[in-house]
Write a protein that binds this DNA or RNA. Structure first.
Lengths: 204, 204, 204, 204
DNA sequence: CATGAATGAGACTTCATTCAT
DNA sequence: GATGAATGAAGTCTCATTCAT
């Protein structure tokens, strides 16, 4: 298995042990509960540290969430970047993005849950480092689309932003059922179906 | 203007005035804040009633949210059903669903916000009346797709569930920026773009 | 005894019982401890209410302190105003102010302690209602001095602000030992001594 | 300029650098905030050392405050003693004490703030070294007064303790506005005004 | 001489909710 | 149909302090 979900994969060098324990604890707890119903007491207990320590390393309970998300996102980013690099055609790159994103979400549900459900309705998330990574990811997709149009792989009358929207929306919606109801997803099939629709169109 | 956003459109007019005031108060407050940071005290103050009264009419703070959502959803449902009825071709129906959904969300941001951001991460929402309406809406789309396939308008090798996913995902993702950042959306253009992609495909 | 210290003497009409209990509780506790080492838990327990109730009626723990102080100050103000009214000569009025202030502080040590020790180093006190009363009191003294100068009772080359400073400073310093160490004060003697110095001067 | 306020004037130069940095840090921070809202973290950060080091040199956060106060007080004491020595008449000595005290407080507001606002409501201050210096200062005034009476410069029916109270109270009250609101003080004028009142009396 | 990690006790505060009237 | 008073449980966060290295 190429992708790990077990622990927050951080550039773990200089982080003090307590900080790592706390981040892992939140990650673990979010497998079962939503962020709001996890208390700092829970986190501390799970991490085996005192509540106070959380506030040594994190401004906030929210800040902790964002840093955890950020950690997950970096792993995701590295992984997806490597996968894309193996492709030359734009359409293939998009295909890979769709499949890999679905896979990442499937493998790391905590990551998916945070990104898709928890974080979006708090405005200060959009000023966090974690959101910066989303922007990079999102930008990458747009660039690939533009290259595809330039290379004549994609029709010129396709609006790049709209296509990105459709791609991201499809990915996210496909994951929702998974995240919310815990359904298993047949990633190969789902991603193929999505690509079939988006690339070839549904109309006869 | 065909669609109203001002007040919760309560289908049964027989609601006692206090109940209406409370529901409107929440609706109003959610234009600015997210549900979690709205307190019952806020709601009562905005409604001009006492906190206690909320619990006369609603089991719960959440129950209040669901009832408000439900009110909005019924308006939405009526509106969209009427629009679809005017079309005969499946593809046109889907086109209308996309456009009308986008428009409804745009016109009534509170509705969009509740549905897209607030409600999804609380498990008991999925047992609420409000969610039943979502299922009807969702079912309708699936039926139209199947009819489209049967009628030869849509390619047979398209997976109906996947198509629904792509459609819903596209709609929702297109609204997110609106809901979160308050961006204006050019609905005609956006829906046309989306349809262009989904129906014709992007690949040359 | 004309002056009561037992309870916060408030225009107690419309105050809910819980609010009164809380204010009295703080007053009582401050007889023994300083404000900072009194916890909201202490206050609630003493008042026989829950901690939460404190925040129904007071913005803050500090706000509670200011409101209590304000209550005490109103009693003080009423009392002193009545006493002054009985005098015609400015010098006699000042004499009465000195004596009565000393007496008030002596009788109500909580009041003295709050005013002289607790409140002065927190900047937002100076925007509280309680401080407004201090300003009135202070203004009154200044007015009496000016009248005394106009009436020829007080030397024209005396600076009114300076005289007020000397008077207030003398009063407060005289009380400090009382407040801090719990010394008894012979008010008649002390006030006479102070007046002797200020009015007649110490130089032969 | 005869009087320095910049740094804690440490009488023994043999203090280790860390200790000096910490004391200076507190001094500096107290120019803006009150003691209670300065945290050990603030102090350490400002000093450029770690929190732990504070407890190498000081028993307590309070102990640190007292030692800082003590440093300031020694400078003050040296300065005032020298000034007094230049006078022969008791009245002149008192005059000098008033003026010099006002000046010292004006020049070193942190010193004034600590002495006048911070320290008085914590009982263990009165067992600290810093308080011993206050007692010496206070005793000096009393001695001068007694000598003045013996020498026939001051009326015999003046109570020495009361006079000291009036003097100290006047000084302190004059400084309060300065310390609290940051008002500038015209020391020559203020001290002259005070002396005018105390020495000559205000009554015609 | 100094650091850095961690603690622990408790502080203040919030808020949904209940109930007598 | 509505109010107002009060609850209680929990929640987040703060900070002085300790100790091994």
């Amino acid at each position: 298995m190429e992708l790990e979900q077990k622990k927050v994969c951080l550039p773990e060098k200089s982080f003090p042990p307590g900080k790592i324990k706390i981040m892992n604890a939140l990650s673990e707890l979010m497998r079962e509960k939503d962020f709001h119903s996890i208390t700092t007491a829970d986190i501390a207990a799970t991490a085996g540290v005192t509540e106070g320590l959380i506030y040594k390393y994190f401004k906030d309970k929210k800040d902790l969430l964002y840093q955890v998300l950020n950690g997950h996102f970096q792993t995701f980013q590295h992984y997806i970047t490597r996968k894309i690099a193996a492709q030359t055609a734009s359409v293939d790159k998009l295909r890979i993005i769709i499949k890999t994103s679905l896979k990442s979400y499937a493998v790391n549900r905590v990551f998916a849950r945070i990104l898709l459900l928890e974080v979006r309705n708090s405005s200060n998330y959009f000023e966090s480092d974690a959101y910066d990574m989303v922007k990079i990811y999102s930008r990458t997709i747009l660039d690939i689309i533009s290259q595809g149009i330039d290379a004549g792989e994609i029709r010129e009358d396709v609006d790049p932003h709209a296509l990105r929207q459709v791609i991201l929306g499809s990915i996210e919606h496909a994951c929702l059922g998974e995240v919310i109801f815990g359904k298993e997803l047949d990633i190969d099939k789902v991603s193929e179906n999505i690509c079939n629709i988006i690339f070839k169109g549904v109309q006869k």
